[in-house]
Amino acid sequence: MSLPLSRMARGVGFFGFWLLLAGPGVLDVAAGTPSGGPVAWAAELVLGLLASLAATWASLRLLPPAPGRVRFTTLARLAARFLWQSILAGVDVALRAFDPRLPLNPGYLAYPLRIRADTDRALFGAYTSLMPGTLPVGSDTNGALVYHCLDLEKPIAAGLAGDEALWRRVRMGGLGDE
């Protein structure tokens, strides 16, 4: 996907979010029950377009599209994995919190993340912060991402490696690797 396309994709995404916000107002008409008449509907739609234009402009200014392409099928897989893993993470933490013995073995683990681009590192950190038992606390001097782990017994690094591999496949280059 080329750059203008990815810009448009962002715009479409923000417009989609606008529809989520404005939901009833816009979609009532689509559902055949116009509440405020066609003028109000058109006004709402035009405003939505303008708003998503503003949001897209701000987004592109703050976060210019990175080089490289995004593979959407893998992204969907990543999203599904994220959803499942975050549920597992919640359950995991809940079980530990409810357990009277408080089975914790907290500690730090340095994961030598090979992704170099700042934004992608931060995104990867955000992603893994909702995975079971991991919470990134920063980068050490070697550029490894340091995690605080609830239970060092778990094969955490392997899981992270799997995540990173998947992440890489989504981004298909442009990660500023070593």
């Binding site: 919190a97 409810f98 919470l135 606390v137």
Partner: peptide, 26 residues
């Protein structure tokens, strides 16, 4: 669970785990 974790877990970072993960699921 999040609250219990916040209260019972031994250190701040562990409590943060409890908070982010359990509450988002909740």
């Amino acid at each position: 669970a999040g609250t219990l974790g916040l209260l019972r877990f031994p250190d701040t970072l562990s409590r943060l785990h409890a908070l982010t993960k359990a509450d988002n699921l909740g």
